[in-house]
Design a protein around this nucleic acid. Structure first.
Lengths: 232, 232
DNA sequence: CCCTTCCAGATTGTTAACAAAAATGTTGAC
DNA sequence: GTCAACATTTTTGTTAACAATCTGGAAGGG
């Protein structure tokens, strides 16, 4: 259906669209880490030539969302526990500051938008729509970066959020729903109250919580590991 | 000579090398903003096929170092004053924290490396080797990110540093030597003293100083501007 | 029975020719 | 003489065929 959908769009489908599509799929954990992304498969999935796919994969690789192995193809990235540490360290540096900025710059309309987003998160969570809940949970952090009003930062955050999805897919407990929407709700409360320090601290606690919920001693699920495991 | 040099390497020259080379040239302000990067020129500059060049340009575009205009070609990016604001806002978020991390993690050997680097900055500055001074000044921030020990952050910082070079090229005064090496020296002093707060504050002041030295009311120097300027 | 070696199939990487678009230069009419 | 339309040239974008590499399995030997 993806193929039909994409083919229906027809006309012009740029590599940016493909990148966006794959980003979404990774965030929703429909593409687990280590999944092979063969060129021919993607070609008739999106109904475009090999060149576009190749460029899209290169862009995704430059964003650390896929890994390119020479003569072997493209695979959805499998972050190591070290990389997971890195990502959370970076997010802990950035996102409290982003929350501060959001407090400063959020218009009433944007606050309403955030509240609405949280409502949808809440609904998806209670309706058991796990996939939507995961996606919305990630998108909340992206929305916050958008409210902060810095496109450069947004781009960085989009990468971090997506990589976090991969990390949770590898190291997270199965019942874990990424972020609890309650944490998000409290952050928006602080934004509404124009409490920059409070929002920053809540964001820090929130990220710390997510990180400690992970089991960073687990190992990767990529093909190369099977080799090293089964070699014994 | 670049062509001969690159051709001499021969054998295998990956797109990463090309990207790195262009990064360096941009940091040293040998490639001013708006410079056209025609494929054929790059082809015989690096002695590789058009495909490699194309991939390198795409990677550079994904890092906001070059702009790709459809059917027009690739140009060295010309950040707007808004984008300049964004970059400094992001750096002001990141680098104080990076400085803190560096204080925590720097080994004695790394501190010696930083001191050595500053010495070279000092020499280049006083010898009037402007190009070297600019490059070393930028590299100091990269080195600090390296000491902080987070590759993900290093990648982000490399992009920020390079974009800052472009920004200074557009909005900076001609006599401006990017960062004064004295600021860097004081930061390393704080690292040596294991004073995280001090290092972070100095870094913040340092970046703020650079930003206020810019004249962000200037306009771009790209081809499109000539049109609007000469139209009168 | 297991291991190594080799071959067929499939997939990726590269090259070259081709198509399309933009920039440039020229001609002709007003 | 100036402007506009047209033709040429250059540059970028795309496609398709070709080459190189890896995967998986089968055959052969230990």
């Amino acid at each position: 259906m993806d193929a039909a959908d994409a083919a229906a769009e027809a006309a012009e489908i740029g590599e940016e669209d493909i990148v966006e599509h794959i980003f979404e799929a990774v965030i929703e954990q429909r593409l687990p880490p280590g999944t092979k992304l063969s060129e021919s498969a993607l070609c008739d999935a999106f109904g475009v030539g090999r060149m576009r796919i190749r460029r899209a994969l290169l862009l995704l690789a430059s964003r650390q969302i896929v890994e390119l192995h020479a003569n072997r193809g493209a695979f959805v990235a499998s972050p190591t526990s070290e990389q997971a540490h890195e990502v959370f360290e970076a997010r802990l540096m950035l996102e409290p500051s982003i929350a501060r900025l959001a407090v400063t710059r959020a218009t009433d309309a944007e606050i309403a938008l955030l509240a609405d987003h949280i409502e949808r998160e809440h609904q998806a969570h209670h309706a058991g729509r796990r996939r939507d809940a995961i996606r919305l949970s990630g998108q909340f952090h992206g929305l916050l970066a958008q409210v902060a009003g810095n496109p450069t930062m947004m781009r960085i955050m989009k990468e971090m959020i997506t990589r976090t999805s991969l990390i949770i897919g590898i190291f997270g407990a199965q019942d874990m729903t990424d972020c609890r929407d309650h944490d998000h709700s409290r952050i928006v409360d602080r934004i509404r109250a124009r409490d920059a320090d409070g929002a920053a601290r809540l964001m820090q606690d929130h990220l710390q919580q997510i990180k400690t919920d992970l089991d960073l001693s687990n190992k990767v699920t990529t093909g190369l590991d099977l080799v090293s495991i089964l070699k014994r």
